[in-house]
């Protein structure tokens, strides 16, 4: 098992060996040829512009990197399967969208930027699958991955002490717990089912509900307010995230369950609860006030007393 990245891993990587390489270089082809690689897992479709790199750097890493990797795979005789971690951003987010996207929904609606990159990448992956029908190609379109340790545009947005949301819009969101992402990758490697699959936790949640569960105060702002966050270097609210935070999106995971046979263990709500565990609540004053008021009610007090006497 070989890990390839431009930066060395920080912690313990177990029995994995590491090669420091940039996938935009043909070096990657040498790695694949030399090590007789049989399975390639492409995880490096990044959604965050690198510090100092900017959008163009990100696009180059994503699109050119994938092209290099696919070229290397195509030349290799040993590669038997390819797994690509894609994203649900490929569907875009607009007022013209169906409530739940299925894998067959068209992805050309994605306006530009990162979503367009991903659409192009998926196009190359499909092209590779056509040219090498002997390789099992699996694409996973993941909803926003969250978890206590995940850093992404979405999690940094949700970690803000005061969460700005677009005035008058309440988008539907879906989350995927990081453990489910790892579980799904492992499942794909074991089962080797080819195709494209949506991956998300069960259920959807409006942003307002998400913020309430995180016990953070909300600030409704006009449409340019979310863009200001970026220029103020508070949070990376990219255009596709802004679209998602305006119109929301849902992806249908029926095919993942029935064809791929993978069932996420965390629902959207459970993933959010796990994410919220390490978060210090900055709001929740209204709830505390209501709780105090509730505790003052004589009947509720009597009930508590009764409960305590029964317990004791």
């Amino acid at each position: 098992m070989i890990g390839v990245d431009v930066v060395p891993p920080g912690g313990d990587i177990g029995g994995m060996s590491f090669v420091r390489a940039d996938i935009r270089n043909p070096v990657i082809a040498k790695v694949i040829a030399k090590e007789d690689v049989d399975t390639v897992v492409h995880l490096s479709i990044i959604s965050t512009p690198l510090v100092g790199g900017g959008r163009s750097m990100m696009k180059e890493l994503n699109v050119i990197g994938t092209m290099q990797l696919l070229a290397a795979c195509q030349k290799s005789a040993t590669v038997k399967s390819l797994v690509v971690k894609s994203t649900a951003h490929v569907y875009g987010a607009s007022s013209r969208d169906p409530a739940m996207f299925t894998e067959t929904s068209e992805t050309r609606r994605a306006g530009g930027g990162y979503a367009k990159d991903v659409a192009e990448i998926e196009g190359y992956v499909r092209g590779f699958a056509r040219r090498r029908p002997d390789v099992c190609v699996t694409t996973l379109r993941c909803a926003n991955v969250i978890g206590p340790k995940v850093t992404s545009p979405m999690t940094s947005y949700l970690r803000l002490p005061l969460i700005p949301r677009r005035l008058g819009y309440d988008p539907r969101l879906q989350f995927l717990h990081e453990h489910d992402l790892y579980g799904a990758l492992g499942h794909v490697l074991r089962s080797e089912v080819a195709g494209t699959f949506n991956l998300a936790g069960d259920g959807v949640m409006p942003l307002s509900q998400v913020v309430r569960r995180l016990q953070r105060p909300m600030l409704p702002v006009p449409s340019f307010g979310l863009g200001l966050l970026k220029s103020a270097h508070v949070a990376q609210v990219s255009p596709e995230l802004r679209a998602l935070l305006t119109f929301g999106r849902g992806i249908d995971t029926t095919r993942t369950r029935e064809v791929l046979g993978f069932e996420p263990t965390y629902s959207t709500a459970a993933a959010l609860d796990d994410f919220a565990q390490d978060l210090v609540p900055t709001g929740g004053r209204v709830d505390r006030a209501l709780a105090t008021l509730e505790a003052q009610l004589p009947s509720v007090r009597a009930q508590h007393a009764l409960q305590e006497s029964l317990d004791g």
């Binding site: 509900q209 569960r213 709830d287």
Partner: peptide
């Protein structure tokens, strides 16, 4: 009545409710 209403308010404020996939 007030206890029920408060419980409802608290459920709304803490986000303890369910919406279906269409919202």
């Amino acid at each position: 009545q007030l206890a029920r209403f408060l419980a409802f308010l608290r459920r709304r404020v803490t986000g303890d409710y369910v919406v279906d996939e269409y919202g």
